[in-house]
């Protein structure tokens, strides 16, 4: 690992985050949007691990574990919301829920 610049790791994390963001913007299916949020969280975790590896400190991996916890809690609540959404609207189209009414 003596010759990979740290910037390339951060660049990869940035590109993955951008792809996840693009997915959230272009997809209307709520399951795909949740997947893209997972991609974004994963990219942020990659940036933390890359920074931790640059200075050979364990802090980056500790932050990775916290991000993993947040992602697990987020996806559990999010998928429960998806099921409720599908029960109520009989579709997975986000645009069906453009009114804030029960």
């Amino acid at each position: 690992m003596a010759s990979v610049p740290m910037e390339h790791g951060l660049l990869l994390a940035g590109i993955l985050f951008g792809l996840g963001f693009l997915g959230v913007l272009v997809r209307r299916n709520i399951v795909f949007m949740l997947m893209c949020v997972e991609i974004m969280l994963n990219a942020a975790a990659l940036a933390f691990v890359a920074a931790g590896s640059r200075w050979a400190q364990p802090d980056g991996q500790v932050m990775f574990i916290f991000i993993l916890t947040v992602a697990a809690a987020e996806v559990a609540v999010g998928l429960a919301l998806v099921l409720q959404f599908y029960r109520g609207f009989r579709t997975v189209d986000m645009d069906a829920a453009d009114r804030m009414r029960g």
Partner: peptide
């Protein structure tokens, strides 16, 4: 700045 060669 390159990545440290050590394993955490």
């Amino acid at each position: 700045a390159v990545f440290a060669a050590v394993e955490v």
